[in-house]
Every structure is written in C-alpha cells, then in structure tokens.
Design a binder for these strands. Structure first.
Lengths: 172, 172
DNA sequence: CTTTTTAATCAGGTCCCCCTGACTAAAATT
DNA sequence: AATTTTAGTCAGGGGGACCTGATTAAAAAG
C-alpha cells in the first residue's frame, strides 16, 4: 500500500508546477510579442500546428478528423494561422475539392519552440534526476492513456496516439 | 555537463504528459457535466477559487491585486461564480464600499477537487518514485520561480507565491 | 448523365479570459 | 464642508475555442 502522504506531496507539487509553468510562459510570451500571441499549446490553433509538424500537407478534412474537430472549427483555426503566416492553404491538384495545409518555416519554428526546445528548468537537473523523471512520466503517461482509452467514447484517443508517436520519433 | 539526450527525453515526456493530461480531463469533465462546466484551473474563475480557498473573505479589490487582474475582470469572474453558487458577495459592514467574497461549501469543494484530490495516475507509482518525483518537481518549481522573478516586471509573482504557500500548508 | 457524397465556405452563436473608459457611492483628506 | 481617493458597477470590445445550419463546387456512383 503506497503512502498516501507521499502521493499528496507529489500531487501538490504537480499542481504547483502547472500553476507556475502557466504564469512563467505567460510572462515569456508577454515579453516576446507584447500584444496578440497567446500560449496556444494543445488546443485550437496550437493543436493544428502540432499535427502539421507531425505530418505536413494534410487536407482540412484530415486535420479535422485527426484532431476531433468539426471541419468548420478547423477552417477557422486554419484561417487564423494563415493570417499569422504560420501555415499556407493551397488547392489540391489531384482533387480540387481539397485544400492542403502546409506549415510555413515560421509555423514549423513556432511548433518546435512549443515543443522540441528543452525547457530551461530541465537543464539544472542531474542525469539521474532526468532518468528518474523520464521513467516516472512514462509510467504516468501510460496510465493516462489507459484512462482515456477506457473512458473513451471512441473519440479523442487517436489524436493523442498520433502526436505521441510523433514525439517518440522526435525524441528517441 | 548533463546529457542533452536525457534532457530531450524528459522534455518530450513532459510535453506528452501535458497533452494527455489535457485530453484526459477534457474527457473526465465531459462525462461529468456534459454541457457547461469547463476545466477552470489556473485562470479566471479557477484562479479566484484557488485564491479564496487560501484566504476566504477577501474584497474584490484584494482579489484583483493578488491575482493581478483588473477590478472589472475580477468583478466579472466573481459574478459568474456567484451564479454558479460557488461564492457569495456581501457588503462589508465596516467599510460599505467593499464587497466581501466568500466561498460557499460548494465553492470550497470545487476548489479542493481541483487540487487536493490525488490524481489517479499517481496512485500507481511506488513510494520511491513518488519521492523522486516530488524532489524533482521541487527543484523544477524553484527554477520556474526564479525565471519568473527575474523576468518579472514586479507583477504576477506574488500570486504564485501566495498560492504555493497555500499548497505547502495543505500538503505538508 | 443525373444523383449522391465529400470538402469547403459563410453566417451566426455560445462561452471563456481579460482590458479600457465612464460613472456612482462611500470613505479619507484637507 | 468640499475635495480627493477608493471600491465597485455598467457598457463595450478584442481574441480564443468550439459548434450547428445552410449552401456551393467538385468528385464518385448509380
């Protein structure tokens, strides 16, 4: 029987982490672009960016299905991203109904800084700590996948699966 | 010189964790209340709840300053929370300009389930892993605090400081 | 060669976070 | 008592994440 107190400690730290992270990159983004640009991350436009950096040149429909969004929402996000010069839209030549979305260099860069960049706060950890953290997170993530897949109404999970595959490619 | 590869691994896992967590409790909340109620957490209404569960009976102004929001935004969130029966508003008797905000039992409960509850995914970790995680997160959080405080334009940090104090009280 | 299906679009809507400006009522100052 | 500061309110706005409904153009099927 694992120690409840220890669980609570960890839980508290995790919450704290979430909170601090949140304001930390709120500040980072504020200094960066002052007005406009908000965190993005794993919703809406950010989600699109992530999906595209996993596989570029998808159609809007494809994106919508992968991200579990309606085509209209997807269109909205795509258009917003186009305005920000992070993606481009072009009609498919093989099927002229389709619109193919591609990351611009800027978009790719944006997606990468959202992810690939090693956050500052990890650089002060020792190798041992990094290993520990990685293995713990692996376990936790596996749990979360389970949680999702069991509770799931046959939606959402594929997204995560896809993106996490991409992460695996990227980091291992 | 710490191993860059290890850092990348950990970073990847962390991102993955963020992502999965996000959809995991998206699903959880969806099953819970179906329509309406979204995550809350560390912004807007959620932030208020957290601050209040740290110290109840604050005035709107107090809340605004602590949370680094305008009084108008604060008022908006407070009103929304009142509608949800999570907080109450009452005029101060000593200074009739002030409006004192108090958590209802429901509000307190809401704040607690946002935090105190040990997430499922922690319960499968061993004691050792929990200790490791806690100590690593402590280190990471300290780093983030530094990051915030140095980059800071004398704002934001106090909120975090306050809430994290509260967390410390709660979990230790 | 018509249907039907498919990929997109426009229009309009809901709720969220957060801000500026204008204004009132009650305290604190002068 | 008159002025200024303080706590709130209302009105309005910008951006974001999503959604439903209706419509168009192009491809697939009958």
């Amino acid at each position: 029987m694992p120690n409840l107190a220890k669980q609570k400690n960890a839980a508290g730290k995790l919450i704290e982490f979430g909170m601090i992270r949140h304001t930390a990159d709120e500040i980072a983004h504020r200094n960066h672009t002052d007005k406009g640009e908000r965190p993005l991350r794993f919703q809406g436009q950010g989600k699109l960016l992530l999906a595209l950096s996993q596989e570029d040149g998808l159609s809007q429909k494809e994106l919508a299905t992968r991200l579990n969004l309606t085509v209209q929402s997807t269109a909205e996000f795509v258009n917003k991203l186009v305005k920000k010069d992070l993606v481009t839209k072009e009609k498919s030549t093989t099927d002229r109904r389709k619109t193919i979305i591609r990351l611009t260099d800027q978009g790719r860069a944006a997606a990468e800084t959202e992810t690939a960049k090693v956050p500052e706060f990890l650089t002060t950890l020792t190798d041992t700590e990094l290993d520990q953290l990685t293995s713990i997170l692996t376990k936790i993530n596996a749990n979360l996948y389970d949680e999702i897949n069991t509770a799931d109404d046959t939606k959402s999970s594929k997204v995560q699966q896809a993106v996490s595959d991409w992460l695996r490619d990227w980091f291992l």
